[in-house]
Amino acid sequence: MDETVRMAVRGLSAFHRGTAVLHNVTLDVRDRSVLAVIGPSGCGKSTFLRCLNRMHELAPGASVTGEILLDGRDIHGPGVDPVALRRRVGMVFQRPNPFPTMSIFENVAAGLRLNRMAGDLDAVVERALRAAALWDEVKDRLRGSPGSLSGGQQQRLCIARALAVEPEVLLMDEPASALDPIASARVEDLVHELKARYTVVIVTHNMQQAARVSDSTAFFYLGRLVEHSPTAELFTNPREERTEEYVTGRFG
């Protein structure tokens, strides 16, 4: 197993208008692996995810302390442009959010075009759509509106859009929660494939989904990391009693 650490989180705390919403989180994200982040609503799992690409600090009154190392370099270090960072750490959201005024092609190309990044657009778009397992379904209507796609297809379009800028890490914030079970299974299948090339961090409400797609799982509760273990271990024999109570459904 490849044990290279892609992202190292060290003593990360996040604040919202002075209130801590994440306390002193330390964990490693292994390269080319899937980390699932689970926990009850308000446990800080989404905040944690948004810290990894510095989206958290966009909210008014938000701040962070601690370190997040991407390939050994602190993403909050001087000279690190958060805008450039987000090209290396992509993100997919809970609800599919294709840009409605752009065609399917333009959506995938948006990251490159609006960032004036060089590259053969046709080739990049095809590669991204193939990587997102959507190419065969849309190759004949690339100029069409994303509004004509199903929810699951839209979500895979958003994944393709994120992949087109060739990120190293892909963050997914409950990517299947708005999808039906079949569409959600396709996204999960895709996550398995993405692991070969990308490092994936996925936040999910759905524990079975976390169990199915991830290599390791982090359980957050009240803004604290309670346990980070290999997924098989966390779901059969968790180390912490809090985790046990959560995964078995003895909560609150």
């Binding site: 805008v83 987000r86 992509g90 993100m91 609800r95 005024t101 609006l114």
Partner: peptide
């Protein structure tokens, strides 16, 4: 929807460009 703005920002598109090229057309 704020999701569109976030979608643009998450692609590493600067905020002013996201406003003019993604949010305003919508």
């Amino acid at each position: 929807p704020g999701a569109l703005r976030e979608g643009g920002l998450a692609l590493g598109i600067p905020q002013w460009k996201t406003s003019l090229r993604i949010v305003l057309p919508a």
